[in-house]
Write a protein that binds this DNA or RNA. Sequence first.
DNA 1: GCGACAG
DNA 2: ATCTTGTCGC
Length: 230
Amino acid sequence: MPDEQNWDLSPREARALQCELAPRVLLQPLPRSFAILGASDIGYARTSNQLVAVMVTFTWPELQPLETSQVISSALFPYIPGLLSFREAPTLVVAFRKLKTPPHVLLCDGQGIAHPRRLGLASHLGLCLGIPTVGCAKKRLCGEHGLLLSHRGASTPLILNGEVVGSVFRSREGVKPIYISPGHLADVESSQALVADCLGRFRIPEPLRRAHNLATDLRRALTAQHPVFQ
DNA sequence: GCGACAG
DNA sequence: ATCTTGTCGC
């Protein structure tokens, strides 16, 4: 699989690469049983243009914390809708390799195949790492869906070009839904089931929430070193 | 040309 | 994502 690839691409080249890699994504049920779940997130320190990658692992299905890794890097690629992985994935891959015990499944903050070229961050990362990944985003990137009931656990298919690419999922009563889609070595049904089994008392599944909090803590520490003078 | 647009 | 104050509902 495409492991150490060249991340120094123009937006045009990045889109072309996505079209080449997307067919390599495998859609299949997640492992019926596995021991370690991972979750990842990125923080951004604007004043120093630095990315903070956080990777957290937990026992599965108990979700007891196991290990965390953090990596700081300079942001080399801008945020462009549809090209998020070219900004975040390089640093996340390094954070993954710093883990003593890699997870068997990884939850990612962003889309999987619910992407214009079917290669969102979770899918791209899954190919790079060679493990099952699931995308869990707070906003929709593309695709359409019908009415979503307001009770916790309600879901409706996310459809792109006539295909079901994910599910719009109500993780808490009366709050905005989250957008779940398979990354790599996963499918829509098992991806939603995994996220459903990670829910605590908040909208964001617990493992991702933990990764996000750690990333925010580290980002604030960096910002304190790079104050904005006026 | 106009609107949409993960983090 | 980050920045940023008060404010509104479960």
